[in-house]
Structures are given as C-alpha cells and as structure tokens.
Design a protein around this nucleic acid. Sequence first.
DNA 1: TCTAAATAAGACTAAAAAAGACCGAGTTTG
DNA 2: CAAACTCGGTCTTTTTTAGTCTTATTTAGA
Lengths: 156, 156
Amino acid sequence: MNRIHRKVEYALIALKHMRAKAPGEKTTVKEIAALYGCPHDVTARVLQTLANKSILISEQGAHGGYMISRDLSRVSLHELLEMLLGPLGVARCLHANREGEHDAACELRGTCNIVSPIQLLNRKISDLYKNIMVSELIEAGVRTPKAAVAMVGAEA
Amino acid sequence: MNRIHRKVEYALIALKHMRAKAPGEKTTVKEIAALYGCPHDVTARVLQTLANKSILISEQGAHGGYMISRDLSRVSLHELLEMLLGPLGVARCLHANREGEHDAACELRGTCNIVSPIQLLNRKISDLYKNIMVSELIEAGVRTPKAAVAMVGAEA
DNA sequence: TCTAAATAAGACTAAAAAAGACCGAGTTTG
DNA sequence: CAAACTCGGTCTTTTTTAGTCTTATTTAGA
C-alpha cells in the first residue's frame, strides 16, 4: 500500500543523477534510461514536466539535455509530488467529487461522519511532505561520513 | 494522488459510529451500510478484518454485530492501515520485487541510486502514521458543541 | 543544407490495483 | 425451523497507473 509512483521514482533517480554532475553539464533521457533501466518515454515525460515547472532547464536539439535549475534544498517533496501527480489529497470522502476539491462538497455531507478526520489526516500528510526537501531525500545514504552523521543527527 | 482507500474510509466511519455507542451495544453491517451509504459487502469484510485483528469483537447469529474491543487511543493509524492494506511501504524501488520486502532485494541494487532516499521516505511516513492514533482521528472536529450536536443529529 | 540526436507532446494500449457484487456457507436467537 | 446475523471465498467491473507508438520540433555539426 501507499507505493511511490514510478514517475516520482524516475524523477528522484534523474535528479540524484544530475546533482552529481558539474554545473552546466547536461543529462539526456537516453543516458538515464540506459543507466538505470527506466523506460525512455515515461522518463522523458517526467523530465519534461519538471522542465515545465522550472525545476529543470531543457536544451533541445543535438547535444541537448536537462540541467537542474532550482536549488533542490528549496523544493519540497510536496511540490515535487504535486508537479508530477496533481493535487495530492488523501481524502476522497466517500462519494465525494473525484477531481480535486478535497475540502469542498462531499455528497454525503449530511451523513458522512468522517469529513473532519480525513481533513486532519490530509493536513498532517501535507505538512510532512512540505517539510521534506528534495535535496534531503536524494542525499540520503551518501557515502561521506559527514553526511551520514548529519543524517543520523537529523533523524534522532 | 495518494487517496485514502475506501476500506480505510469505511473502517473509520464504522469505528467512529461505534465509538458513540454505549459499551456493550452492538453495531451491524447493515446499520452502517444504511446510515452512511457504504456498500454492504465491502464494509462487512472490513469489519471482519478488524475483528480478526481484535480491534473489534464480533458476535454471530441473530442480534449479532460488532463492538469495539481495544482502546483506540492505543491503536495507531499505522496499525490500522497495515491491518487493512497489508505492509505499507512507499517504495517499490524500480524493478524491485513486488510483494513486501521493501527493504530487501531490489534487482538493481547495483545501479539504482535511490534505495536510501526511498527508505528514508518510508521511515518518515511510517513514523507519522505510528504517531497518529485512531482515536485522535475519529475525534477530530467535534470540539465545538455546535458541531457535536450537528453530528449527533446527523447520525441518529 | 542535410542528417543525426535531442526534446515536446498527443493518442493509444496494456497491466495492475481497487472496488464492488455474488454466493453459499456457519451461528445464534426466538 | 426460520430469521438475522457474521464468515469468507470467488468473480466481475471499474479505475488508475504504466508504458508504447507516433509525429513534430529544435539544434549541432558534417
């Protein structure tokens, strides 16, 4: 349950890969697909999305590719998820409208007894995601002792 | 994205409903299905599961039904989710084995670069769920007398 | 200027997961 | 014995997610 979506997986893989490069160095979809086994087309669309949302800069044509554009320590997981998957709301609220509007009308407003609980849950999950920065994620488990120590400390 | 599953919704609805009753008073699936519009069969299986996991006590036969058995302030959302949906792990880890074993073998262990990030994410989400008690959830939003009155009215 | 290598993006198909319906039991009360 | 429940299996449908195919468009370099 609650599996991460492929799109997000591919995005993290790509971002982590790019982050290891020198500034200005480009990365192609082909490169990532070959290295990590991600399906080319899906990965391409993910990167396109990130480029549209200006997390990446894209350069077209031969020798084109993608580069990281924003400071990933200022991009929250919440932002990333919404870019890739649309508005994230945990709640559907039995018989509620399916698109967005999680706080809004629920057909059973009169009878449904868990509107508030679901909203509370939504808030808590959103808060968690807003407080996780993409950089923090993709730097997890890196080999340098310094980073490892920092991580353990942060989690304690 | 990240919608709550119906099963969980039904479980919360049912638990909240039962919680409002006097100790020893039973609740039938039929009652919940009629009151909240939950599909009978699905709700039934949810309650069966909760009974198997001893959150509920079930009594069979005519005039049977379910009662809350455990102190819901000691049941975490994490527990509830795992009861209903199986082991919750965010990660699939590109090409990983599909069943459980989220921390275990991932076919691309050599090449996949986001094993640690995904594990970190997993931990954070688990922690969140472990710190949310079911009672906290189903009691949300009943603080003001007005709301409480409205709710009782709606439930009757 | 032509070609190869990229991104851009839409439409389509396939696979997987979730939700729900159906059915035939077993239990208990009256 | 009949009625009103729970129990739990299997099946079908629906929805969501993942992936493929196809056709542009852009750009560097031969």
